[in-house]
């Protein structure tokens, strides 16, 4: 069975802060990480391989050359190989264009199942998974919590919705999206493998020279959405912060709530 795991390298958004004076993002020193939901997808794939060593796992990303390091980490965790799709021509892609490029590369590599994260923590769109499935023309199951059963031609998973969980079976090929909140917590990397990697390069690099996609369908040109402007949140001045005794604090809150008629008789 061939599994492709989609991974995106993202800045750790919990480490990002806003410079209140200039109103810009402080990105310096913010570490790049593998998108958390994608780590769950990788772990799910590795657990299938644990049970069935014939499984071949490819970690794939579209990104800048530096993202190769993330794929090598995936290999050190147990994936068989990596595919880095990188080219200036792909830059500036929105989800519509990204999914086209990913689907093209996925088709070239060949697959039975594609695993994606539900959502990337930088763009937060949760669109690339379903859109890639659509471009591949295969069914999708989103919000996967746990894989229950894998057969040659079908897979049964538990998906988590707001009020219910569903057990669903889907025919292969298909695409699943995973949640970092799932049962799949990433395993450690094998350090020997990291050393090995330097001997043998297991990451294939694909440029548009290899994919040969129509330039009007990829990157910025292939993106129906564009960013008109960006801004950071207004630092509001509506706040009043008080440092009072505990009794005064309690009384002032109660008094305010009474005035606002939140406390009634």
């Amino acid at each position: 069975m061939k599994i492709i795991v989609l991974e995106k390298q993202v800045p750790d958004s919990t480490e990002i802060s806003v410079d209140k004076k200039t109103g810009t993002l402080i990105r310096e020193g913010v570490p790049s990480i593998t998108n958390p939901d994608d780590m769950a997808g990788l772990e799910a794939a590795l657990q299938i391989k644990d049970k069935n060593p014939d499984t071949e796992i490819t970690v794939m990303t579209m990104g800048i050359p530096k993202a190769k390091g993330m794929l090598e980490e995936g290999i050190a965790r147990g994936a068989d190989k990596g595919v880095l799709i990188t080219d200036r021509a792909f830059a500036g892609a929105d989800t519509c264009a990204t999914s086209r490029t990913l689907a093209d590369a996925i088709n070239k590599v060949g697959y039975d199942i594609v695993f994606a994260g539900r959502q990337a923590i930088d763009g937060d769109t949760a669109q690339v998974g379903p859109q890639t499935a659509e471009r591949l023309g295969v069914p999708q199951v989103t919000y996967v919590d746990e894989i229950l059963d894998v057969k040659e031609d079908q897979i049964t998973v538990k998906k988590s919705l707001e009020d219910v969980e569903q057990v669903v079976t889907v025919k292969l090929p298909c695409l699943l999206t995973f949640l970092s909140d799932s049962v799949y917590k990433p395993r450690y990397m094998n350090c020997n493998d990291i050393v090995d990697l330097q001997k043998e390069d297991k990451v294939q690099v694909l440029t548009n020279g290899d994919l040969n996609m129509d330039p009007s369908l990829i990157g910025l040109a292939g993106s129906p959405t564009s960013v008109k402007r960006t801004f950071t949140k207004d630092v509001s001045d509506k706040t009043e912060t008080f440092t009072l005794s505990e009794q005064e604090t309690a009384d002032m809150i109660a008094k305010t709530l009474k005035e606002k008629q939140i406390i009634t008789k």
Binding site: S236, T239, L244, T249
Partner: peptide, 30 residues
């Protein structure tokens, strides 16, 4: 949290909340 609050109070919740329960009760009966 203070930067998005309409009113912020610097204080220890362990100490403020018991008093707040009483202040609310008092405000209700006023």
């Amino acid at each position: 949290i203070f930067s998005i609050s309409n009113m912020g109070f610097v204080g220890d919740v362990n100490k403020v909340l018991p008093l707040l329960v009483e202040s609310i009760k008092a405000a209700k009966s006023e």
